[in-house]
Design a protein around this nucleic acid. Structure first.
Lengths: 260, 260
DNA sequence: TCCAGTTTGTTCCCGCGTTCACAAACTCCT
DNA sequence: AGGAGTTTGTGAACGCGGGAACAAACTGGA
């Protein structure tokens, strides 16, 4: 049924062999006898690792080679204690009294997340949002390679988006198998989303990023993450309403609800 | 400093006066002597209320007038116990032995979130993503009115997006004050985001939806929500990598990580 | 070598959120 | 009227995540 996933098209999944300058001494030699290092990173931590990764990249671009947990935490917008606890789930990659080597930690987080290898991504539904996603540089710059843009509208076939041609939605299964696609992005209207999802899953996709305003049902083993623009606005509206009713007329600066 | 927010341009913020057919009997007459009804809805619940609202709208469009917590929960993709507890924070809007009146509950949730009134929204940064946001029907259909599209690129000024013209970023302050804008959407590149944010806040905006891949710092009293497309993909990649290493070669369906 | 200063990694505690389970309340049928 | 069946609303238990505080470990100077 599902295509046998054979060889992931990774680039350099091995150990080391990256800009590991001034590698901390006690990294792989003696540590971690107590905890199983590769098991069970909390979901909340996983959600923050990409933020740390981005902050590290920003620090590296500014030529900073070493940083403390305090500096990295402020760059990422979190508490330093939380940052240290998050990083401790990956292992002991810092040096006490010194801090973290930016390049080394950056590689370790990237490897833990899985962005040291390339992931093939297919985008289905090339409307306004699909266009934006296809042109989004944040995908390709982080190890995600968009291998196909699919749409069911015959009028859009062949249209160029960036450097890529829009292909027919009928080619979905062939594209997924050919490029060993594991991640699918759904940017279709709500009505088409479930059918597209089913076809992606049947073809072998096991992770789906859903922009359609619908609840997708998927079999076990398939991950779905949902991004809903109007829901985010509604959450803001709720807090906005409460601010307006707590301060009847004049301006506010009353309460911190959720600082970045 | 901040413009004195005077009269919110609401449509019908009052009580009742909506399609409240077959209103449950024990709604406003006798209930809620124990809990203060308008205080402190948990944040996790607030984040789910828009999902319930959408599910109710979908049920209403299919002509369903009454639903049980089980039905609504499956439509929203959550546990029925969680749904009932969430709704209990709003009040007792159901009828035991019967269920919930779809239209009535829909109005109550909409009122609680604050989407029974209109919210003026300004979008800053009309690139690919800004285009998509400006054309997104989910905004206007839920009480959010996009009153201006701003961009700093002189070549884009005057360009039509949908039915709206792109205006200069220099008009930001004037637009915010004129339309009493409380919610700003930032879709600029990362480097411009903080400056745009500062100007929005200084002009009186107290809620910001940020699509730029940057951590924004805002004063107390201002809410920021962040949507980052590449972070979502990276979270999927993490789980995908773990699936790939738990099942060495052949396909999976091994573990439910996070079902929708 | 030893001591002071610094920063990480970890432990403990607390509060929030989720889930189960059940009493309360309503409908319907006899 | 009364009882069986159904469904809501909520109390209690439990697990996860956040935050503070502290011991361990490293650097640098005397």
């Amino acid at each position: 049924m599902t295509s046998a996933r054979s060889s992931r098209n990774g680039s350099t999944p091995g150990e080391g062999a990256v800009g590991g300058t001034t590698r901390p001494t006690a990294a792989a030699g003696s540590a971690a006898p107590t905890r199983t290092p590769e098991r069970g990173i909390p979901e909340a931590t996983v959600a923050r690792l990409p933020i740390y990764l981005r902050a590290l990249i920003s620090l590296a671009e500014r030529g900073i080679a070493t940083c403390s947990s305090e500096e990295l935490a402020t760059a990422a917008g979190v508490n330093s204690a939380k940052l240290r606890k998050d990083l401790s789930y990956l292992g002991s990659y810092g040096t006490r009294g010194v801090g973290y080597d930016v390049e080394y930690l950056r590689y370790q987080i990237a490897r833990e997340i899985g962005v040291t290898q390339d992931w093939s991504v297919v985008i289905v539904g090339i409307g306004n949002l699909g266009h934006a996603l296809a042109n989004y540089s944040g995908f390709t710059s982080r190890g995600f390679r968009v291998v196909a843009l699919l749409d069911s509208d015959p009028n859009r076939l062949g249209e160029l988006v960036g450097e890529m041609r829009i292909r027919s939605a009928g080619e979905l299964e062939a594209v997924v198998v050919e490029h060993d696609v594991a991640i699918g992005v759904i940017a279709t209207p709500a009505l088409a989303a479930q059918e597209v999802c089913d076809r992606l899953v049947a073809a072998g996709v096991t992770s789906i990023l859903n922009f359609a305003p619908t609840v997708l049902s998927v079999p076990p083993g398939v991950d779905v993450r949902k991004v809903d623009l109007s829901i985010e606005l509604q959450i803001l509206a709720y807090h906005e309403q409460r601010k307006a009713m707590s301060a009847p007329d004049e301006a506010d600066l009353s309460r911190v609800v959720e600082s970045a």
